[in-house]
Structure formats: structure tokens, C-alpha cells
Design a protein around this nucleic acid. Structure first.
Lengths: 246, 246
DNA sequence: TATGTTGGTTGACTTGGGTCAACGGGTGTG
DNA sequence: CACACCCGTTGACCCAAGTCAACCAACATA
């Protein structure tokens, strides 16, 4: 199994006001004055090595985390060992919101590559939300966005066929890479076929076959984790007109 | 199609401090003093007739809603007409949180029976959250609970077989009816087989067959929307040991 | 540089749940 | 009170995706 949680707290404070992820992360839309006050909020950074947990289901909830570098997956486990990946998170996205409701985390967060997060003590966030106008609103928006995103995944899992799911997944990845200044059409996935499958409610073989099919059809070219979207419009079309779907 | 939105605003103010849903709803865990201040927050009640929309995807976001009586479903639609029910909501539960992120609603909320909601203007909620200690925390918990709930549905859609899904659904309904002081083992569903199917990612025929199967096996007795859980432990077992699942 | 291990692909076969169709019972409306 | 329509049930058939298995490529470790 995985090694236990490595807590590597850097002494250096993170500065939101200096961070190039501002327009993706919690501080989005806040004034300069508010931003500088926000710097107090972010306590420290923490490095998480590939395959290590940022937190586990059942851990007491104390902080939320903004991804500064790298990427994560979150998953929930059933008693009988079945796993469901509930999301993949990239830089600027917030992890740990699930923990607020019961004051303990309800899922596992695992780094897909060596990563670094900003630790935001929840108590402090609550307190500063009372003071900083824009922070409360922005935090609510972040939570709301997570809810909307989850509804999208439910749509995908509940009413799309295998190839539609993968197409939607690839387009979503593309869009998120684009928002981070990377190529919309060419990127390296950080997760395995099995993790993609778990997220999409499919077996890894089905994911692999769908990749191959897309390649045959000239929609993409894939080699291992490297994906090149050759015909994004074609992928979109695939989702819209269901081919006789469920 | 459905009739357009009927806005029936009662003049009478709702009083959280007088409401018997306190321990289920937004005010949960707040002090008496805080509770009485909360009464200002809830502007008016609004009645929504069966099959009518409380709000629709695209509507500008202005308020969230606490269900005072009745029940709702929320759903998202794809361009090609596919529908996915994202949730069923009962008294004391909060609707509309999806709207915060983009300032417009991302799903439809439809009453499953003649219902009534408390209208909570979002602006006012924001403002009062700055002032009332417990309100902000409680609101965050409500949002977080929604996220956790959605993860549960993703688990269900992504890694359970048809009968497991229905069993999980029935146990969830039972638990929620219990929390509202109704029988844990006998209740009337408010939604059709098709709506259950959409929620569970199944066709209505499959839902119907699973109901029949459970009845044959002596786990439940069903007649139309009336359900009697004869062997809840058996239903739980059905979920835990997958019978050779996907 | 060898070597084990993990991740990905592909094929052959099986099956759970979707599809199509017929039918019967409830219920809400005029 | 009657009629229509919607809702639920059941059967027969089919297909998308799961299962099982073999194999290969990449990569990490010795």
C-alpha cells in the first residue's frame, strides 16, 4: 500500500499577491488591497510526493488546500474495496471542501505527480471571510462551482455512452490546460487508464479501446499518456448527437 | 411542456425560530439569539405547484430556497434532449446552491408535489453571514454536505450494478424519511420510475424489474409508489458484497 | 546493462441492462 | 362518471461494455 502522509512544511510563506495562479484560484476577482490581506491567510506550503496522500477519508478536517504545482485525484472507497475517482484537480483548484460538513474528510486526495499545495487553515478562512468583502463571495463561488462540476459528472455517468464520456473528458482536460496557458490540443495526462476508467465509470480496457477508436477515426493521436486532439469539433459532435444512446 | 413559473409570494413572513424543521435546515446548531436574528433573513414563502419549476437553468441567481413543505427534483438537460436527474430534495433541504458560481442557475428545480419554499435572498445571506457567527459556518456545511452527497451519487453511478443502485436509493430515502419523523420502513415515493431511473443512470424498465426482483426475494413490498422495506439489512448486504460487479 | 514490474493494447467471449412492444391499472380532468 | 393518458409491469431480443487472457512497451530498480 501507499506510504504514510509526508508532512513537508516549507518555512517560506506563500504570497497570493505574488502568485501567477491568481486568476484561477481562490483570490479571483479580489481587489489589490484585499489580495494583500489574503497573504496572511495562506499559512505555509506543503509538498506532496507522487502517489502520496494529501489527506485520507476520516482525517480530521482542519484546512483546505490550493494546488500550487502538480495535480491530484480524489477518490472514495466502498468497504468491499471498490474505488470511485470523484475528480482530478489541477493547479489553482481547491481541495478539501468535502471535509467541512462533518469536520472530517470524506474522500482521499492523492498526488498524481510530485506536487505542492498552499495550506489554508479553515478557522482562519472563516474568520477572514467576516472581514474581507470579496473573500466570502469568492469562497462560495468555489464551492458552488464544485457542485456544478459534480452535476456535470453525474450527467456523464448517468446518461452517456463510453466514447461520449471519454470525449467529454478529453475536451474538459483540454479546456483546463488552456486556462493554464498550455496548448489546447496537446497535453500529457497525469493519470492512468484505470484512473480515467474509474472516474468515467468504465473499465480500463474500455478506455483503452475508446482511445484506439478515436485514433483510428482521426479524432486524436495518442501515445501512452501523451494526447493530441486533432479534431476537437469532431469530439464535440460525438457528444451532442448520441448515436443511439442509452 | 410545463407551464411557466408561477410566483405565489405569501405576505406572511416565515419564522425560523418557530419552524419545526430547524434541526434539518440551515439554522441547525445556531443559538436562540442567532435564530431570532435569522428570522430577518427569510423574506417570504413561495408556493410551487406540482410539476412547476421553482427555477430553470439559465435563470438569474438571486436567492436560495429552503423547502418548507413538499419535495423537488433537480435535473440538467443536454442539447440533444437527454435528461439527468441530479437529486431529489425533501423538507429542510436547500435548493439553488448551483447558482452562486455563475450567478445564474445551472439546473432546473421542479416540484414533485404541491410544495412551499422559504426564499432566502442571497445578498442578504452574504451580508448576515458577516454578522452572525454560526450562520456562515452552517451555510458552508450545507454546501459541503451537497458536495459529499454528490460524491456518493458518483460512486453509485460509476461503480454499482442496477440492483445495488436501487437498494442504495431506497435505504437513502428511508434514512431521510426517518430524519423527518416518518417510518423508516414504509413510505410513499414522490417520483416516477423514469425519474428514479434517470437519477440512478438506469432505464425505467430496469428500475421496475429491480423493484419486482426485490419483492420476489422478500426484501421489500411495493405497490406503485408505496414502498415497504421488509428486510433493510438484506438491502445493505446487497450493496456491500458485490455479486460479481463491474 | 539486465530485469522485474506496472501500464497499456488487443482479441475472444459473456452478460447486464437497454430496446421495443404489448398490456393493464390508476388517477386526474372535463 | 367516463375517458384518456400516464405510469408501471413484463417478455423477447440485442448490443455495449465487462471479463478473461495474452502480450508488449515503458520505466524503475538492481
Amino acid at each position: 500500500m501507499r506510504a504514510s502522509v509526508p508532512i513537508t512544511v516549507d518555512g517560506l510563506k506563500s504570497a497570493c499577491s505574488q502568485c501567477n495562479l491568481v486568476e484561477l484560484c481562490l483570490p479571483f476577482g479580489m481587489s489589490d488591497r484585499e489580495l494583500s490581506r489574503l497573504d496572511e491567510l495562506v499559512g505555509a506550503r506543503r509538498k506532496v510526493k507522487r502517489q502520496h496522500n494529501l489527506y485520507r477519508a476520516g482525517d480530521p478536517f482542519e484546512a483546505i488546500y490550493a494546488i500550487r504545482a502538480g495535480s491530484f485525484k480524489t477518490d472514495v472507497l466502498l468497504e468491499d474495496g471498490r474505488e470511485q475517482v470523484t475528480g482530478f484537480q489541477m493547479t489553482g483548484e481547491i481541495l478539501g471542501l468535502d471535509g467541512i460538513s462533518t469536520e472530517s474528510h470524506s474522500c482521499n486526495a492523492v498526488a498524481l505527480e510530485d506536487s505542492e499545495v498552499c495550506v489554508i487553515a479553515y478557522e482562519k478562512l472563516e474568520q477572514m471571510s467576516h472581514e474581507i468583502e470579496g473573500l466570502q463571495l469568492q469562497f462560495h463561488k468555489v464551492m458552488s462551482r464544485e457542485i456544478v462540476r459534480d452535476h456535470g459528472v453525474m450527467m456523464l455517468l448517468g446518461s452517456m455512452r463510453a466514447e461520449e464520456r471519454l470525449a467529454a473528458f478529453l475536451l474538459n482536460m483540454s479546456q483546463r490546460f488552456t486556462a493554464r496557458g498550455f496548448s489546447p490540443s496537446e497535453f500529457n495526462l497525469r493519470m492512468t487508464r484505470e484512473e480515467i476508467g474509474s472516474y468515467l465509470g468504465l473499465k480500463l480496457e474500455t478506455v483503452s479501446r475508446a482511445f484506439s477508436r478515436f485514433q483510428e477515426d482521426g479524432l486524436i493521436s495518442v501515445q501512452q499518456k501523451h494526447v493530441h486532439l486533432l479534431d476537437p469539433a469532431g469530439l464535440k459532435r460525438l457528444i451532442q448527437h448520441q448515436h443511439g444512446a442509452r
